[in-house]
């Protein structure tokens, strides 16, 4: 099975940023700075008008990206610019409708051409995902599946059989950026480990270094989205925002290290 090269001994820190928020050049700079600060991979958000699994911070980042003219084509182009400049794997994350509209095969080919390593689609569970996920595999791009704390054992086992690259463990019952982790996190992760052999990354609700440090021992990596976008945006979303976002990533890398 393909190793994405994200989980190499150290705990991986994977920041999520919204592509095109507020413009593509800034996204490229932000990602470069985060990689310098120690990010093991980056997730690039593909903005969608109706992001069901996202809280206000990522919703608003998506709205800013769409307002500046970001499209799925431009996200793929930006991803290409990033993979030329950095060595870490680039993961695209976004909802299924824009991808369906773009065409699953065309998306898989263009993602591969842009050097994208993996794709995460939160509203495309494996039951509905064969068409896109097969198209991605055919182009050497890894589809990443998600699990949640309330998942049943039977479904978890099925995801274990299908998982490639890593499994994205949602840390809570809720949307991105919501406070508080699931009660019984340890039991949850142990249960996932019993069924899943690929590495585990934990995301949704990792709001800073302290919480990242508290969960890191249980998993192989953490995904930080809303917190990075908040730091970036509260500092104006320009060069100062890039510095703040990168600093937060650096702090989390140190905290989990």
């Amino acid at each position: 099975m393909k190793d994405l090269g994200i989980f190499c001994g150290k705990k991986a820190v994977i920041p999520f940023v919204m592509t095109g928020d507020p413009d593509a050049d800034t996204t490229v700079k932000l990602v470069e700075s985060m990689v310098e600060a120690g990010a093991a991979a980056v997730e690039l958000g593909m903005p969608f008008s109706d992001p069901l699994a996202d809280g206000p911070v990522i919703q608003e980042a998506g709205q800013r990206a769409l307002a500046s003219g970001t499209t799925l084509s431009s996200v793929l182009e930006t991803a290409g610019r990033i993979t030329e400049r950095t060595s870490v794997p680039v993961i695209l994350m976004g909802y299924v409708n824009p991808i369906m509209s773009y065409g699953f095969d065309r998306f898989a080919k263009d993602a591969s051409r842009s050097g994208v390593a993996a794709v995460i689609v939160p509203d495309l569970p494996f039951d509905e995902g064969d068409e896109l996920y097969d198209a991605l595999r055919a182009q050497g791009v890894t589809p990443i599946l998600m699990v949640s704390p309330n998942i049943g054992d039977e479904r978890l086992a099925e995801i274990g059989r299908r998982a490639e690259g890593f499994v994205y463990c949602v840390s809570l019952l809720g949307v991105t950026g919501q406070g508080g982790l699931h009660q019984g996190m340890k039991e949850y992760i142990e249960r996932v480990r019993r069924h899943v052999s690929v590495p585990l990354a934990l995301g949704f609700g990792i709001d800073g270094p302290e919480r990242a440090a508290s969960v890191a021992p249980m998993v192989d990596g953490v995904v930080v989205g809303s917190a990075v976008i908040k730091a970036f945006n509260e500092a104006g979303g320009g060069p100062e925002g890039v510095a703040r976002g990168a600093k937060l990533v650096g702090d989390i890398v140190s905290a989990v290290g």
Binding site: L52, A53, D123, D127, E128, S148, N150, I151
Partner: peptide, 15 residues
């Protein structure tokens, strides 16, 4: 049709 939802909702939809 189908069930294009985040994994979190699956247990509730199955129930």
């Amino acid at each position: 049709g189908g069930r294009y939802v985040p994994e979190t909702l699956f247990p509730a939809l199955e129930e």
